[in-house]
Design a protein around this nucleic acid. Structure first.
Lengths: 215, 215
DNA sequence: CTTCACCTTGACCATACGGTCAGGAAACGA
DNA sequence: TCGTTTCCTGACCGTATGGTCAAGGTGAAG
């Protein structure tokens, strides 16, 4: 566990804000703790401490640990889907896939905890979000495969397997969040700088877009 | 937890074999349980049940849960390093990187649990194998970067950033193990067939090798 | 001010977990 | 056969954890 830093939590006056603000602080703390310790290793006490609340107060807002975890995972899934829109309304793979890589790399940098929670959830067999995988994710995947296939048919890129292209996009971009600690260690223990993130994005886009013959 | 299948454990007669056989069964069970539940979610009782031994017997061979976990992670790291030799004594990127992708994809198929344990360990900040990252892995990485740079200088591939190429190789190949459940779900719930694994390997190699201008 | 719904929290409980231990069984060497 | 080392295991222990509860505090509405 690296950071003991407490989540900032403003004391709101208005009644409506109390709930929203506390739920926000709890979810933010939970995302961090679940990411750093895993579901089994996370404790409600630790989340409570990081959110700056007594443990009993957590159970007032979230009945069980599973409830809290479910909310965290759902939140992340929504962010994933938002980024996915980069894919749409693009004339070709250079713009569409390029924007998608940009968006996903940005998420890896700004939401590393969320990415790890998602990875952990999937690695453990997706006990909580299995239905999302079978519905929303599958539909989204099928749709993007159709788009890629269209680009191939239009001669805008080489005839690669669209499904494995998607896997490569997910793997490569999320790697910078999920394995961020390893990358930081190999970067002499220092987090990637702005310039290094730019270099990472450029490298990924360059290799992928050339790999599919889009440039 | 998907599989309750007990690890096969032969009852050996000879004294020497008892230790080896039991340690093997425990490590095999532990790898599976740690992968499916994470370190925090795994219990010694569950590992004992899967190994077909009383819990107290586990503590006879491995003093603590951390000890057992450490052994599991080390075992995986050795497998990683063995595969790395594919990189060496290759005349160029097509052979070297091609063989490396083959080897790592094979490991993702044959040792999915190990890959997940490794991923989980790194995601949690590598509390156990931090020193490996800073020594063995860093040295190996630097060496391969030098090899890739030589290939670039010799005009055998485009001048990509060798470090980000390595990250892409790791990410893409390990994705098929770590996110195997997601891939299986998107494959109508069925594990990838032999033919589909061949297709995956070919796709990855094709996109990567073209992406770096080696073919 | 009164009322009431909502929020807060220290104390508490049952359970499950990692780990211990003593005593017995089994393998080995002489 | 006997002694010694290694292996086996049921019973047990202290602790930490998820969750509960009852009593008290606090903001808003009339």
């Amino acid at each position: 566990m690296s950071g003991d830093a407490q989540i900032s939590r403003l004391k709101p006056g208005r009644r409506t804000d109390i709930r929203r603000e506390n739920e926000r602080a709890i979810l933010e703390a939970a995302e961090k703790v679940f990411a750093e310790a895993g579901f089994g290793g996370a404790t409600m006490q630790l989340i409570a401490d990081m959110a700056g609340l007594p443990k009993a107060n957590l159970h007032y807002y979230f009945a069980t640990k599973e409830d809290l975890y479910r909310k965290v995972v759902q939140q992340i899934f929504e962010i994933w889907l938002d980024a996915a829109s980069s894919f749409d309304d693009a004339p070709g793979p250079v713009e569409g896939i390029g924007a998608y890589i940009d968006a996903k790399m940005d998420i890896s940098r700004t939401h590393p905890h969320g990415s790890k929670v998602w990875a952990s959830e999937v690695m453990h067999g997706a006990p909580v979000i299995q239905d999302y995988l079978e519905t929303t994710l599958r539909d989204w995947t099928d749709g993007r495969i159709a788009v890629i296939q269209r680009w191939i048919d239009e001669g805008k890129m080489r005839p690669v397997n669209p499904r494995h292209l998607l896997y490569m996009l997910w793997a490569t971009t999320q790697h910078y969040a999920d394995f961020g600690h390893q990358i930081q260690t190999l970067n002499n223990g220092k987090p990637l700088s702005d310039k290094q993130w730019q270099e990472a994005k450029a490298s990924v886009k360059d290799m992928v877009l050339r790999g599919i013959g889009a440039i």
